[in-house]
């Protein structure tokens, strides 16, 4: 008794139980002795129910189906015209038998080859550190910025203040850069410089951008083929986007 109830859990479903019963009795799927199978099936179900086991509704549905077929086979029928009431069931059992057979083959294949492992692409992190840079690249980049901005603002008439040597703070610029980018999101680097008027301001912005990049407050968003590693004048056409949008105010550059 105990063995039987224990075994109901082992079946994948009613079809599995049915198939097992048919195979155990060495019956022909196309000619299932429905009365015998139905009785054996009910034995399993009743047993499981008697032991307070949860008999899933699928098993109950199949039980009623079997009884329906059993009752139909008892009725006289026109052999020529009517379909064997067992045929649909036989088809389902057969289809399941095939799936089960395939799953057994699969188990073998999997145990043989399941150990083939692959890694995630993510395990190789793209190297974002700037390497082998020459300081002259920086001065060239700055020169490029200055000349570009100068070219666009050549015609601008500028008032020359009487008070000379206004102190320009890179920290201030860094804050204004973050603020600016907070409003606009990613911006082309050159745009940041265009807002500035004097060379001193631009240098401060330049320093601020470098510092923000270094502290990872902002990041360079390059195109697909962009060589992030090269901080050449080209790099200035890259979009720069805010990485961490948090407090601008606690940002300090040691000057």
């Amino acid at each position: 008794m105990e063995q039987i109830t224990y075994r109901l859990d082992q079946f994948e479903g009613p079809l599995d139980l049915l198939l097992t019963l048919i195979q155990k009795n060495k019956f022909d799927i196309s000619d299932i002795p429905i009365a015998i199978i139905c009785d054996q099936y009910m034995e399993y179900i009743n047993d499981a129910a008697a032991r307070d086991l949860d008999v899933s509704s699928d098993f109950i549905v199949m039980a009623s189906r079997l009884m329906l077929i059993k009752s139909r086979t008892l009725l006289p029928r026109d052999e020529e015209k009517e379909e064997d009431p067992r045929e649909e069931l036989a088809r389902a059992v057969l289809e399941y038998a095939r799936a089960k057979q395939a799953s057994e083959l699969f188990a073998g294949m999997y145990s043989m080859h399941g150990g083939r492992m692959v890694k995630d692409t993510d395990e190789i992190a793209p190297d974002n550190t700037l390497r082998d840079q020459d300081v002259s690249l920086l001065s060239r980049a700055l020169a490029r910025v200055l000349s570009e901005v100068r070219a666009t603002e050549q015609s601008a008439v500028r008032f020359t203040p009487l008070i000379k040597k206004r102190a320009v703070s890179a920290t201030e610029k860094a804050r204004s850069v973050i603020k600016y980018m907070k409003e606009r999101g990613a911006v082309p680097a050159a745009e940041l410089f265009r807002r500035e008027e004097t060379k001193t301001d631009m240098i401060a912005v330049f320093l601020a951008v470098l510092e923000l990049l270094r502290s990872q407050r902002i990041t360079i968003v390059s195109g697909d083929d962009g060589d992030v590693g090269t901080l050449d004048a080209e790099a200035l056409s890259f979009e720069i986007s805010p990485l961490t949008g948090e407090d601008i105010d606690d940002f300090r550059i040691e000057e």
Binding site: E12, G13, P14, Y96, A99, K100, A102, S103, E104, A107
Partner: peptide, 30 residues
């Protein structure tokens, strides 16, 4: 892989592309 996983996998592999209701039908369970 559990026996049910292998069954579902087998049904899908041989009948792909197929729906879940087809798998349910062949296996007789959800």
């Amino acid at each position: 892989l559990s026996a049910s996983s292998l069954e579902v996998l087998a049904i899908i592999a041989y009948n792909q592309p197929c729906t879940r209701s087809y798998v349910d039908m062949v296996r007789g369970v959800d």
